[in-house]
């Protein structure tokens, strides 16, 4: 599974069709997570599936080098940090831990032209954290397994 399989059709379909579609769908699931089915966990799994598809089709030795393992560990820790930030920010603003009510959203509503409530803004922050954590850890698990395979 570390070797590259040379096929024009496989490389064209994976690079041009599959990968942009899967990543755009993952970002859609992430950004509409608090209103429709989906969320940070599902979006992270979908984007991680796209990255694993690159590794399977284009060869693990070439594709895995694009994202080094240290960066993946940092991304997972940054995801946990975003989650902690979403929890501690209401604590600084005078409410309980993970109580999203006092989060200021007026600047964001003016900037993006939306009508977002403070609670959906808090869930939005936390979903970003879960997204980075899940995507980075799933890709990291695959890299560690593929690095220890015999073939």
């Amino acid at each position: 599974m570390n070797d590259r399989y040379d096929s024009v059709i496989l490389h064209f379909v994976v690079r041009v069709v599959m990968i942009p579609l899967i990543i755009v769908f993952g970002i859609y699931v992430l950004l509409h997570g608090e209103l429709s089915p989906g969320g940070g966990f599902q979006a992270g799994a979908i984007v991680a599936a796209a990255l694993l598809l690159v590794r399977l089709a284009l060869g693990n030795r070439q594709a895995a080098l694009r994202i080094p393992q240290g960066l993946l560990i940092w991304l997972a820790c940054i995801g946990l940090g975003i989650y902690m930030f979403g929890g501690i920010l209401p604590l600084i603003l005078g409410a309980n831990f993970l109580d999203y009510a006092p989060i200021p959203v007026e600047w964001y509503n003016q900037f993006a032209g939306e009508h977002r409530t403070p609670r959906s803004m808090g869930i939005f922050i936390i979903e970003f954290g879960v997204f980075f954590g899940v995507a980075a850890v799933l890709v990291l698990i695959y890299d560690l397994i593929a690095g220890s395979s015999r073939q």
Binding site: M1, A45, A49, I145, S148, S149, R150, Q151
Partner: peptide, 13 residues
């Protein structure tokens, strides 16, 4: 998606 890929990696070990 992901579990199938990870299990293929485990089978290759």
């Amino acid at each position: 998606g992901v579990t199938g890929v990870l299990l293929v990696g485990a089978v290759s070990v």
